[in-house]
């Protein structure tokens, strides 16, 4: 007989991991393209190069080292590569970038068994490795130089970031160095990591994902909300030293982190309740590192630390089964 057999359900909503990853890439595109407009062709090379290298590394590991003959690339490595590229200063050396991608994909992801098994966000693993290994290069920030596609990112004058100035000299100084800080942070006209510049571009990308039903809003709202709230307290106590809360969530990596890194499904909690806990935790740690710790920015460490807690958060935020009866004793 010509009929095929197969388990129920026999239909599917046709949303696959690959489609999700493609949508994430689309969502990252506005911020990624802005980086190219700010720093020129080299940024395009870094972004595309990282994506290609990441996919190639994953393919080699899966096909030839883990001997998965039926492995088909799902695009998740490209997402990691692009996120990492967006998380470094524009003038990063290509070989440092390559090492970062290698660490992210191989150490951050594949050694655990590939997608779905890694406890930490691979892009953040790569970012932290680069941050520790190449501290100078990772904190040299080229100035934004709009619409010069042929410029070399290495010859651009370098500068400090708002968060760096706030850490060293306080908010009053930062306001004079960076006029219109809040507006510039929102539209993306400040030095910093390549892809974290424009809150507007990142939010637009996130809204696309949300509209597609791929991400939920809990983690970003909890993360950004907590950062806003705690920053407000600091600002209220000493407005000369700390930025106002709106500026605080717009500068640095909070937007990129909260919207695209903390929401990585593999390394974040499953349930809505768990996501709220996770997001609040990220926000608290971010602010504490920013204002009390040694680093000017705390997004990376905050998310990694909370990643480590995900199994525990999942445990305490299990959904209540329909009609569950309370056990006695």
């Amino acid at each position: 007989m010509r009929f095929t057999l197969g388990p129920a359900p026999h239909i599917h909503d046709k949303i696959t991991t690959r489609k999700i990853m493609m949508d994430v890439l689309i969502a990252l595109a506005p911020a990624g393209i802005l980086a190219v407009l700010m720093w020129g062709w080299y940024m395009l090379l870094i972004e595309v190069g990282s994506m290609v290298l990441a996919e190639a590394l994953e393919f080699i590991v899966m096909r030839y080292m883990r001997k998965k003959k039926n492995f088909i690339p799902d695009g998740s490595a490209a997402v990691t590569g692009l996120l990492l590229a967006m998380n470094v200063p524009a003038g990063i050396s290509w070989w440092m970038m390559a090492i970062g991608v290698f660490i992210a994909i191989v150490i951050g992801k594949e050694i655990y068994g590939g997608i779905g098994n890694n406890p930490f966000n691979p892009a953040l693993v790569g970012r932290i490795f680069m941050y520790i290994s190449f501290p100078a290069a990772m904190t040299t920030w080229p100035k934004v130089n709009w619409f010069h596609f042929t410029q070399s990112a290495f010859s651009i004058q370098t500068t400090a970031t708002p968060l760096g100035v706030i850490k060293m000299h306080g908010m009053a100084k930062a306001s004079s160095v960076f006029p219109h800080l809040m507006q510039n942070a929102f539209f993306g006209n400040l030095p910093g990591s390549a892809g974290e510049m424009s809150a507007l571009a990142l939010i637009a990308g996130f809204l696309y994902l949300w509209w597609k039903g791929i991400v939920s809003f809990e983690i970003p709202v909890a993360y950004i909300g907590t950062t806003f709230g705690l920053s407000a307290i600091y600002w209220f106590v000493n407005p000369g030293a700390y930025p106002d809360p709106t500026t605080a969530i717009l500068i640095g990596g909070v937007m990129l982190g909260a919207l695209f890194m903390a929401t990585d499904p593999v390394t974040s909690p499953i349930t809505s309740k768990g996501k709220w806990i996770f997001g609040v935790g990220c926000g608290v740690i971010t602010v504490l590192i920013r204002y009390i710790g040694a680093y000017p920015e705390g997004v990376n460490f905050a998310i990694l630390l909370m990643n480590a807690l995900v199994p525990f958060i999942d445990q305490i935020s299990r959904p209540k089964v329909f009609g569950e009866v309370k056990k006695n004793g």
């Binding site: 039926n70 799902d74 590939g114 997608i115 779905g116 974040s268 499953i270």
Partner: peptide, 11 residues
């Protein structure tokens, strides 16, 4: 009809 190879759960 639903088909295709099973991949890793991405949670």
């Amino acid at each position: 009809v639903k088909k295709g190879t099973e991949m890793n759960c991405i949670k």
